[in-house]
C-alpha cells in the first residue's frame, strides 16, 4: 500500500513536469491555455492525493481551489478575453522551439541533480516531490523569459506557482502557506486579468510586450 501511494504521487508529480514541457512548445495561445488547464487538473489530483496519504484534510481545499480556479475559471476567462480582443495569432518566441526544449531538459536534469543530492537524508517522497517541483518552477521561469506575449508570460507565472504549491504540499505538515499562497495566486490572477490586460488593450490594441518596450523613454 505504501509503495502504491508513493508510486501514484510520483506519477502525478512527474506528469506535471511533462505537461510543463509540453507547454514550452505550444505555438498557439488557445492551445497553450488548454494545456495549462490540464496542468492545473493534474496539480489538483496531486494535491488531493497528498491530502489522502498525509491524512491532511485541509489540503483538499487547496486541491479544490486549484481545480475550480486554475483549471476552469482562469482558462475559460482567458479564452473569452482572447476571443473578445480578437487575438488568434501565433505566439512570438524569443528563442526557437528546439533550443527552448533543450534548455528545458537541461533545467530538469539540473533540478534533479541538485535536489536529489542535497536532500539525501529526507524522506524519499518529499525529496522527489521537491525535485519535480523545482523542475516545474524552473520550466515556468523558462517560459516567462522565452515568450514575448503578455498572456503566455502570465501562464508561465501560473505554472511556476503550481510548482510552488506542489512543493508546499509535498513538505509534510507545512502550516499556513498552502492556503495563503493559493489566496495570493487568486489575487494575482485577478490583478493580471482585470487590470493589466484591459488597460493594455485600452492603450495599445495589442497584448504583445514588445509593443510596450518601444514606448520606453530611455535610450535602448
Amino acid at each position: 500500500m505504501d509503495q502504491f501511494a508513493f508510486d501514484v504521487a510520483h506519477l502525478l508529480a512527474g506528469g506535471l513536469v511533462l505537461i510543463s514541457l509540453t507547454m514550452l512548445y505550444q505555438d498557439r495561445l488557445s492551445a497553450l491555455i488548454r494545456v495549462f488547464a490540464l496542468h492545473a487538473v493534474v496539480l489538483a489530483l496531486s494535491v488531493a492525493w497528498q491530502a489522502a496519504i498525509q491524512h491532511a484534510p485541509h489540503l483538499y481545499i487547496t486541491a479544490a481551489i486549484a481545480l475550480l480556479f486554475k483549471a476552469i475559471i482562469i482558462p475559460v476567462s482567458l479564452l473569452r478575453i482572447m476571443k473578445q480582443l480578437g487575438v488568434h495569432r501565433e505566439i512570438d518566441t524569443v528563442v526557437g522551439i528546439g533550443p527552448t526544449m533543450l534548455a528545458g531538459i537541461g533545467l530538469i536534469a539540473l533540478s534533479m541533480v541538485v535536489m536529489l543530492r542535497v536532500t539525501a537524508e529526507s524522506d524519499p517522497l518529499a525529496r522527489e516531490d521537491l525535485a519535480f517541483a523545482l523542475s516545474v518552477v524552473l520550466l515556468g521561469l523558462l517560459m516567462m523569459v522565452t515568450r514575448r506575449n503578455v498572456v503566455s508570460q502570465v501562464i508561465g507565472f501560473m505554472s511556476l506557482e503550481n510548482g510552488l504549491i506542489l512543493a508546499a504540499t509535498g513538505a509534510k505538515g507545512m502550516p499556513l502557506v498552502v492556503e495563503i499562497s493559493v489566496a495570493f495566486s487568486v489575487l494575482i490572477a485577478f490583478i493580471v486579468i482585470g487590470i493589466f490586460l484591459f488597460r493594455i488593450r485600452e492603450r495599445f490594441d495589442t497584448v504583445d510586450v514588445q509593443a510596450l518596450e518601444r514606448l520606453r523613454g530611455e535610450d535602448p
Binding site: A133, L160, L164
Partner: peptide, 25 residues
C-alpha cells in the same frame, strides 16, 4: 510608460517572490 513599468515590476517581483517562497519551503 507607467503600465510598462508596473508590468515589468510585477513580473520580476513575482518571480523573485516565487523563488523566495521555494527557499522558505
Amino acid at each position: 510608460q507607467a503600465l510598462e513599468a508596473a508590468w515589468k515590476y510585477f513580473i520580476l517581483g513575482s518571480v523573485g517572490i516565487a523563488l523566495a517562497l521555494f527557499g522558505t519551503i
